[in-house]
Write a protein that binds this DNA or RNA. Structure first.
Length: 193
DNA sequence: GCTTTGATGCACT
DNA sequence: GTGCATCAAAGCG
């Protein structure tokens, strides 16, 4: 079942936790790739580390739009990052998806990567994730319910004691909030640190 | 194995 | 001009 807008139109931390164990799918001309979401981070509007903290700009406009849309941006000039927009329209909050456990299209993922690596590192980190899934800024603003890019709730059981809360990664401000979540039994698929 | 560093685009002060 | 929600190659051991 594809997750609908009402799933995303809730508290950002709740959405971040519940996205763990769901499956991200991208259907492209090259083929279909999918993977279990194993690591997320929550970004709230009152958070100095959040793009929306200083208000709306052309770059982060998507975050303020409808819940359930993809917010994709370029970081360090090289890498893309994929987020799911949460809360009601006008709120400017999102969940960053940081890592996947590959499910379908692993062949294609290897092709999209220039380097050879073990499968548990294919989508370890937001930049790698977008690369192997074929996500670019072309996907910025697309609704996750009615696009080739969507999230489904599969029957992957996640009990709350498998969810580990940690501080977020790569930030210079507001580092110490427990807003990063990952599944302990998939830790090797997660970016390091 | 682990740590360091350069590549690189774009929004914003 | 600066500072990033990063990655991988190069260097060390």
């Amino acid at each position: 079942m594809v997750l609908q807008a009402d799933f995303y139109a809730r508290d950002t931390v709740v959405v971040a936790r519940e996205l763990l164990g769901k499956v991200l799918v991208h259907e492209t001309a090259e083929g279909i790739t999918s993977g279990i979401i194993v690591e997320t981070e929550a970004y709230m509007q009152d958070d100095p580390a959040c793009h929306a903290y200083r208000g709306k700009t052309p770059r982060n406009e998507t975050m303020f739009g409808e819940p359930g849309k993809a917010y994709v941006y370029l970081i360090y000039g090289i890498h893309h990052c994929f987020n799911a927009v949460t809360r009601e329209k006008g709120r400017g909050e999102a969940v960053l998806v940081r890592a996947l456990c590959p499910l379908r299209g692993e062949e294609l993922m290897h092709q999209r990567r220039k380097t050879i690596c073990p499968s548990h590192r294919l989508a370890s980190g937001p930049g790698n994730l977008c690369r192997v899934m074929g996500i670019t800024r072309d996907q910025d603003g697309v609704p996750l319910q009615e696009s080739p890019l969507y999230v489904i709730s599969d029957n992957i059981a996640v009990s709350s004691d498998e969810i580990v809360e940690r501080t977020r990664i790569g930030l210079s401000v507001a580092e110490n909030r427990m807003l990063r979540f990952y599944l302990s039994n998939y830790q090797k698929y997660v970016s390091r640190r």
